[in-house]
């Protein structure tokens, strides 16, 4: 099936197998490998992207469902070469270790801050319930998001 998708501001048009997951379209066809596959049950959140401005798990959508939509991935978050405040926050507060969950964490947090610019610690932790990190114990991820919240 033919799909038209705008990804990180660039229009793409591709023929995809109907069963292709959006995450595989992004990774395999567009070679945007910053979006990761960490599970097969939508449980880990490593594949989180923005679809028309909302954080979604790209392993839970078919590529054809993104037809006509705008997608933002971790590669498209920085603007004009400047890191997004969340990217800066994760660096400043040591919010990542192995980095595998990081793109999903940042995309989820970006959605949170859009709707709730000054979240409490509890609100941050609640917002991250769909994203698993095995390295950090979440302590510094919470601080990274608080850092970005201050900066934004």
């Amino acid at each position: 099936m033919k799909i038209n998708v705008k990804v990180n501001g660039t229009a793409h048009s591709h023929d995809v197998e109907p069963r292709t997951l959006l995450v595989h379209y992004l990774r395999d066809t567009l070679r945007l490998t910053g979006t990761h596959v960490g599970c097969d049950t939508s449980g880990c959140g490593a594949c989180t992207i923005h679809l028309d401005g909302k954080a979604v798990k790209s392993c839970t959508l078919l590529a054809v469902q993104a037809d006509g939509c705008e997608v933002t991935t971790i590669e498209g978050l920085a603007t004009n070469g400047n890191l997004h405040p969340l990217q800066e926050g994760f660096h400043q507060e040591h919010g990542l270790q192995c980095g595998f969950c990081t793109p999903g964490m940042i995309m989820t947090a970006a959605d949170l801050l859009k709707h709730n610019p000054k979240p409490s610690e509890a609100e941050i932790r609640h917002a991250l319930e769909g994203n698993i990190c095995r390295c950090t114990g979440y302590h510094n991820i919470v601080k990274s998001i608080q850092y970005a919240s201050e900066k934004m």
């Binding site: 490998t33 979006t35 971790i74 590669e75 994760f90 660096h91 980095g99 990081t102």
Partner: peptide, 10 residues
């Protein structure tokens, strides 16, 4: 950090 927070890790 930079390659991990920008989606450019390998």
């Amino acid at each position: 950090d930079k390659r991990f927070i920008t989606g450019k890790a390998n």
